[in-house]
Design a protein around this nucleic acid. Structure first.
Lengths: 196, 196, 196, 196
DNA sequence: ATATAAGCGAGACGGTACGTCTCGTCTTGTG
DNA sequence: CACAAGACGAGACGTACCGTCTCGCTTATAT
């Protein structure tokens, strides 16, 4: 005997995620201004259909993020062979783009979803913090394969070390100070302790 | 001619901040469960008195934080002369304490205040991210004076590099993985690039 | 295709009107002390449900009145065949009852609703002033059918002529002077101009 | 020994009453929109000065009325010798003027003051209902002296009998029906019972 | 003169109701 | 049975107004 009743509408499923992404991204509305009712209206979907499949707004937004409908939208890091220079130039250009506030708004929205959604919403992350697996980690993995990293260094950990302060500043201040970020990058690459 | 009208009641001012801190800290209630009405009631103050002096709940919480009524409450880092060992043992004990969820709840509350308060609320931070100026930075300044840091390294920047990933994990996952944190600390101290 | 969405809950509709009536009548609370929140609580209804269907408190009270849940609660006028005597005795007993303040409070509440509600609230009256269609008008209609009124006299108009000064005194002074009211009744019945 | 301290400022006293009258009359604001704060501001007076001398807003408005700063502003009734015709033409012209809503707004304001002010506010009336001692009563007194009224008829009572239904209609419906008012006037003058 | 006392304008205070908003659930008829 | 629509109970939000309190200042009488 098979399951009874009408199967879940995949059209509605996608429409909801797309609507959430569109509202956050195109309408530039913050996580707070994004209401479940607005998502439902934009998606042409009943509100109950959202609550049937997601725990709450945070769940929708997070699934939109994890399925790539929302991005923090960082460019790939160039690879000229010079890791330090590549990261420096990438940082500069990202700060310029992020200075347009859009990335900051998006970062705050994601943080809001994580912070206001319950434990189970955070569990969706599965331990992986989104922005850490992206552009910088990619470049570092390439460098590692080329043997350009110290023995035993984990590229994703380095990415976290560089990106987390960046994101924190994006969220709190709005646009990170380029000087500070470059100095931090330099410090992370070189190490804090004096060479013996 | 002097100022006119009844002066701002410093008693009420403090009562509000204390009430907000008490509710968040002692009653262990999350930022969302903390309502302006409850703060007012706890402080024995009219709601309008809060809105007269603060833009919103986030403003109150942030001022409570900046005036030291709320802390992320990290212990001082011990100073045995061995920076690496001191930070490692401090990290271990903080992770254990933070594993009790209280610190995570508080960190999420602060983040919620930052993220849901408007631009002007964030401006109160004045570019200083709270948890970065604390325990770790202190220990690093001591080390710097003892000449234990590489030339030109900024202790507060190092603190950010260590603390921000910690806070991010505290917020998103709940309790940071001790292994990961120790490896990250080690990496930051030593540097990413291979010694030439 | 029929109408969409959950239909209006008649249970809530009635519960609100009943609650308003009960609070005004049984709890003897004045129109000012009657709050929308209290009505909602008493009715076991969300505040928004009230504002969804009524413009304001005045609208609720007026509908309660027009649906008979609230009355100014005048006794029927006796009919012994002697109009003048019947009205006189009725007036006397009503003044005694109204002297208990309850009727005065209710009359003030209704007036407050009319006066503080907007134009559209008053429009609910549809030109009919509530207390004018009641006890006195009934008795006068009976008299008219028995041929006891002057040709062309409108019973409801007479009722207004007698009741409006009564209500005005009820509202402003509290309890109308029996002597005054009897003299006024006598005057209205007989006419002001001398017989030729 | 005389009294000590600064005497009551008559300037402020008048300024408050004038301000209340001006706001109600010139700014056409309803009793509800008239706040104590607005009166104080308009009068250039501290709020406490109002509460020092009046019980509440209703007290201020009522004193403004009783001191003639506010009027229901009825024209005098003409006296051509023909009482019926004089009252008829006066009624017609008053209805036309009152149709401009201004009189209705004012009447509602006074009623609101009476109904929302406490018992002691109503006591200020001293049993005299304001609109009843005015134009119509004057004309009737003149007629009485000329012997044009039935023996023993009290002009002020007749005025109440004519004016109260008028005021009630002004308050509730906005503009009384001229036909109705003329018929009522006629009825009151002639009497309800058939001539024997 | 100078102290004492009350009134004054300004405006913050505790309190409370307002009317709006959003959440997450419930209840229709339709496919 | 899931769906769109949309009303529902709940309750926080931020605003408005009430009537009181607290400043520094002014204007009197009483010493």
């Amino acid at each position: 005997m098979g399951i009874r009743g009408r199967p879940r509408s995949e059209a509605s499923h996608h429409a909801v995620l797309d609507a959430a992404a569109k509202l956050l991204e195109q309408e530039r509305c913050s996580y707070q201004d994004l209401t479940v009712e607005r998502i439902a209206a934009e998606a042409g979907v009943g509100k109950q259909t959202i609550y049937r499949w997601w725990k709450n707004k945070a769940g929708v937004v997070l699934e939109a993020l994890l399925t790539g409908r929302l991005k923090l939208d960082f460019e790939p890091v160039p690879n000229t062979g010079d890791l330090r220079a590549d990261l420096m130039s990438w940082l500069d250009s990202e700060i310029t783009r992020a200075g347009g506030e859009d990335t900051a708004v998006m970062a705050r929205s994601l943080m809001a979803a994580l912070v206001t959604g319950g434990e189970e919403t955070r569990a969706l992350l599965n331990g992986g913090i989104v922005w850490e697996g992206m552009a910088v980690a990619e470049r570092l993995r390439a460098e590692q394969e080329a043997g350009g990293l110290r023995e035993g260094v984990d590229p994703s950990m380095v990415a976290a070390t560089i990106m987390d302060p960046f994101i924190i500043r994006l969220i709190t201040v709005g646009s990170p100070d380029p000087e500070w970020m470059r100095a931090q990058l330099d410090m992370v690459l070189t190490g804090i302790l004096p060479r013996d």
